[in-house]
């Protein structure tokens, strides 16, 4: 039983991390209908920027949480600037182009960001200094750390904040109008370009938070980390229903749980024939199954669009 509880905790934490990244994906998608494939790389830049600042301050005697916060303060503007630039340079000129064109520029942006990061931060894996309390608490035989609790709370809090922003503010209304019909929104006095830029900037700020959380939790950062994280988050966003904020959260947590429980029990279920190396197969299988029966994700709206 304690093992099962532990696996649930593992899945929740992992899922919250996916959700943090997926929120950024889904936000951009909700407004623009565009998969920002470079989002994972923005997370990576956020992680490495925060890590650099934290490393500088690690010996200063400031309390750990303060240092982490300063690191975040540094990473957020950097990521915002990058998000803004990506949109302006790689996506905006292609808004009327065929749908797959921005996909290619997104891949180009990913490659460029990765290689730039490699030049700036080198080829090495960086360790995140142990500034946050890492000792584990034990409940009913299952363990967790403070940071893990924070991650789950931050993910939930950010989703709630975004929902409020989108549903309860003027800016949110403008965003929804832009998502619905950009031309009409423009006529109603919404500065569409401005709104889209802002969406990217907010999404990138989320990426910075996610980057810090991921690198602090696993105490590792590397210029290549964005790719796999972005892929998982994208999967999570689609699972929930891409474009839907609650869906991203749900999809993320669900994917985390599926992976955890899959790795933990797939061997027992199949009598040892399939082991934890089929964890991703299991995750994709569930995804495919969900999409076959609910083609727009768990809570996504029905969409009619084509590739």
């Amino acid at each position: 039983m304690d093992i099962f509880l532990q696996q649930i905790i593992n899945g929740l934490v992992l899922g919250s991390i996916y959700a943090l990244v997926a929120l950024g994906y889904t936000m951009v998608y909700g407004i623009l209908g565009l998969i920002n494939f470079a989002h994972g790389e923005v997370v990576m830049i956020g992680a490495l920027t925060a890590l650099t600042v934290v490393k500088l301050l690690a010996g200063s005697g400031l309390p750990g949480p303060v240092i982490a916060l300063v690191g975040l303060m540094a990473a957020v503007p950097v990521c915002m600037a990058i998000g803004y630039t990506i949109e302006k340079v790689a996506y905006r000129p292609l808004r009327k182009a065929p749908r797959l064109a921005p996909l290619i520029t997104a891949i180009g942006v990913s490659i460029v960001l990765q290689n730039l990061a490699m030049m700036v931060w080198g080829r090495s894996y960086h360790a995140f200094p142990a500034i946050l309390p890492a000792e584990a608490h034990e409940v009913l035989g299952a363990t967790f750390t403070d940071l893990q609790v924070i991650i789950v709370l931050v993910a939930a809090g950010m989703m709630a904040g975004l929902l409020l922003l989108i549903n309860r503010t003027r800016l949110g209304r403008a965003m929804r109008a832009t998502a619905e019909n950009p031309a009409m929104a423009q006529l109603m006095g919404v500065n569409v370009n401005h709104i889209i830029s802002l969406t990217f900037v907010i999404g990138s700020a989320l990426a910075a938070v996610a980057g810090l959380m991921v690198s602090a939790n696993y105490s590792i950062a590397h210029y290549y980390m964005g790719f796999i994280l972005g892929l998982k988050a994208f999967t999570a966003a689609v699972l929930g229903g891409i474009g839907n904020l609650a869906g991203a959260m749900l999809g993320g947590i669900l994917l985390g749980l599926i992976e955890s429980l899959g790795a933990g029990y797939i061997g027992d279920i199949t009598g040892g024939f399939l082991g934890s190396h089929y964890q991703d197969v299991f995750a994709f299988f569930v995804l495919i199954l969900v999409l076959v029966f609910r083609p727009s994700g768990l809570v996504g709206e029905k969409v009619a669009e084509r590739a």
Partner: peptide
């Protein structure tokens, strides 16, 4: 499935 859902599957 259509579009991005097809892509992910």
């Amino acid at each position: 499935l259509r579009g991005d859902y097809l892509a992910i599957v």
